[in-house]
Design a protein around this nucleic acid. Structure first.
Length: 647
DNA sequence: TGATAGTTGTGTAC
DNA sequence: GTACACAACTATCA
């Protein structure tokens, strides 16, 4: 396949040859179906659609799945980025004698209709390995076959065909970046970008004459317009799609902008050659410290192979360039790594049923999750990042690390799946496998396991930005707080808070947890979760806490050997623990079996630790618990902070 | 099976 | 600036 694709590239690369091929037998009506890959450059599916074509229908289908599913949310920022990308694509087609048709509906319903209406010979699209896309495309292939339509799918969203990479690795994906890089070395360089499409593309056929006049639009009531009618195939606005709030991100979608941004990044080749990701500044916002090409890669406005080819050209001129895993090229390889592992791991975007993912008894705490999501944790560094996420739909990689660690193993002990969902909604570069993979990484659930390396919500940002410029930008309520206090405003004397116009507890929240305490306790919880996973690996009959409890709900455990008895008793114990008063669970737990003890850890994790730390310290496990203790003892960390604020 | 190395932590002591 | 504790991890490969 790779060789065939390479041959196609070479053949099409010869301009005259291309024209001859196109003119020899231009009799077919083909579709190029855009989903991702919203570009003309390096688009082998488009070139394939143009072969032998009398007419090419460039289509995009607005799939209600991406708007209506309650489990899948998309912010107006990202949706509008998509619409801008479609507008740009349409403009590119128009300058080449065609235009983009934006169809509405489920692809499984829209495509069979147009196959028939347009007399389609061939359907071409870019391969997409995400779970939803795979199911959709399998169904579409079947429908195409029933309609006698040829299907051509091209690999161009990733540098390599990830199936090929896995095959070359002996049938399973490498699980470390180092092993992945060695594999890529063995396989060799990716294909060069496909040649640009010709200046004139096979046009759309002329529309049939309008129906006899009936009203201004010349269309009888109830009569279906042709699917290619320009009146019903334009790119909609975000209002037309149904969003109420206007997009606010500073980033514009589209291939034109992607290539402009790529050129801007490469305008300083020595910066490109010496790039080292861990050294970049997460607090830089006037000029972000990285390329911000991720949203363009996500939608395929930019080809990863073009980016890669440009990098190799710079590296040839700068022999002492940086190397994986920190180089700029390595950032493309990280993307490739997560695509490869993700596409070959069942339930990659979930904890339960995911063989790579540590089963950790995270705590379901809607209040703490909401505080994190809504940028009111009381930690300015965290809240500034979450604000930037909402406003720009993009934050620096290390800023993502900060908030992901804070939500999960660092502070709030909320499942990485909840964080992933919030990112999925707001990121304009949201990318299924990258998002899941990185959340597992940061929560020390897979790939990364140094769970005691915890980001401080105070020190980490301060290291880069001691004046707090980033915080002042995204949290204007703190703009006049002296630098000395801006990362910990609750420590500012009341007079200082007054002078800054920001009283903690009134104008800006007090911290929802005390980092020093909860991070220490959570490290112990992680140690316990790791032990539980290890023992369940050694003894597959014994369910891990989360596996046991999720198995009770889903009927599936992490291991196929999870015993029904353990599952049942675990579920029962989980239910009991939920309703038990927290003051009594500690003693009650001592009488439980191991598996039910683990299940109660899942239901009520603040009592889960078996270490001294876990059992004796409970003052900062979450908002609800803090309040309970505050009532009993009259002094909590949050309470102290609130009094510090003058309440 | 044992050695090795791993994109990106923090706080403290020296 | 450097070393160490934190608390002991794991995929890979020779």
């Amino acid at each position: 396949d790779v060789q065939a694709t390479r041959a196609t590239h070479l053949c099409l690369a010869v301009g005259a040859g291309w024209r001859r091929v196109a003119c020899m037998a231009a009799t077919k009506n083909n579709i190029i179906w855009f989903r991702k890959g919203l570009r003309l450059h390096d688009n082998p599916a488009l070139l394939e659609a143009c072969k032998d074509a009398a007419h090419v229908y460039p289509i995009f289908i607005l799939d209600p799945f991406f708007l209506q599913q309650s489990s899948y949310k998309v912010s107006v920022n990202r949706y509008n980025f998509l619409l801008e990308s479609l507008k740009d694509l349409d403009a590119s087609f128009r300058s080449r004698g065609s235009r983009l048709l934006v169809l509405r509906g489920k692809p499984e319903e829209v495509l069979p209709r147009v196959f028939q209406e347009w007399g389609v010979h061939k359907l071409c699209f870019e391969m997409d390995t995400e779970p939803y896309a795979r199911t959709r495309d399998a169904r579409v292939r079947q429908l195409a076959e029933e309609a006698g339509v040829e299907v051509h799918a091209a690999v161009s969203h990733t540098l390599y065909d990830t199936d090929m990479l896995v095959a070359r690795n002996g049938g399973s994906p490498p699980l470390t970046m180092q092993a992945f890089c060695r594999l890529v070395e063995r396989v060799g360089e990716p294909l060069p970008p496909a040649p640009d499409p010709p200046a004139q593309l096979p046009p759309l056929p002329p529309l049939p004459p309008p129906a006899t006049t009936s009203g201004e639009e010349g269309e009888e009531q109830g009569r279906q317009r042709p699917s290619a009618d320009p009146a019903v195939t334009g790119v909609p606005t975000w209002q037309e799609v149904g969003f109420k709030e206007a997009p606010v991100t500073i980033f514009r979608g589209g291939e034109t902008e992607a290539l402009r941004r790529l050129d801007a990044s490469f305008s300083d080749p020595s910066w490109v050659a010496s790039f080292q990701k861990p050294d970049t500044d997460p607090a830089a916002f006037e000029r972000p410290a990285t390329t911000v090409l991720s949203p363009y890669l996500k939608f395929g406005c930019l080809s990863p192979r073009l980016f890669h080819a440009r990098l190799l050209a710079v590296y040839r001129a700068h022999p002492r360039h940086s190397q994986p895993p920190v180089s700029l090229r390595a950032q493309l390889l990280w993307r490739e790594f997560f695509y490869t592992v993700g596409a070959h791991t069942p339930n990659f975007h979930r904890m339960s049923g995911n063989p790579l993912c540590k089963q950790v008894p995270w705590q379901d705490d809607p209040e703490l999750l909401a505080a994190w999501r809504e940028a009111r944790t009381g930690y300015p560094w965290i809240d500034a990042i979450m604000t930037q996420l909402r406003q720009w739909g993009w934050v620096h990689h290390l800023a993502r690390h900060s908030v992901a660690c804070f939500l999960t193993r660092g502070d709030l002990w909320v499942s990485w799946e909840r964080g992933m969902e919030v990112f999925e909604e707001h990121l304009i570069d949201q990318d299924h496998y990258l998002n899941a993979g990185n959340w597992m990484w940061l929560s020390a659930s897979a790939f990364f396991n140094a769970y005691f390396r915890v980001y401080s919500p105070v020190s980490f940002g301060k290291k880069y930005d001691p004046e707090g410029k980033y915080i002042r930008k995204f949290l204007p309520v703190l703009k006049d707080m002296p630098s000395r206090y801006i990362y910990e405003p609750w420590t500012a004397p009341l007079a200082v808070q007054r002078a800054a116009g920001c009283l903690v507890g009134r104008d800006y929240p007090a911290p929802v947890v005390q980092h020093a305490e909860v991070s220490k306790r959570n490290i112990a919880r992680m140690a316990e979760a790791y032990r539980a996973n290890k023992s369940s690996d050694a003894d597959p009959d014994e369910a891990t806490p989360a596996a046991a409890s999720s198995a009770a709900v889903t009927g599936r455990g992490r291991k196929s050997g999870t015993s029904a008895a353990a599952t049942t008793s675990a579920a029962a114990a989980a239910g009991a623990a939920v309703s038990a008063p927290s003051a009594t669970t500690s003693s009650r737990r001592q009488g439980q079996s191991r598996s039910s003890r683990q299940a109660s850890a899942q239901a009520e994790p603040e009592a889960a630790g078996t270490s001294a730390v876990g059992q004796t310290r409970g003052s900062a496990g979450g908002r609800k618990r803090q309040r309970t203790i505050a009532e009993a003892l009259g002094a909590t960390t949050a309470g102290k902070a609130a009094r510090g604020a003058g309440e």
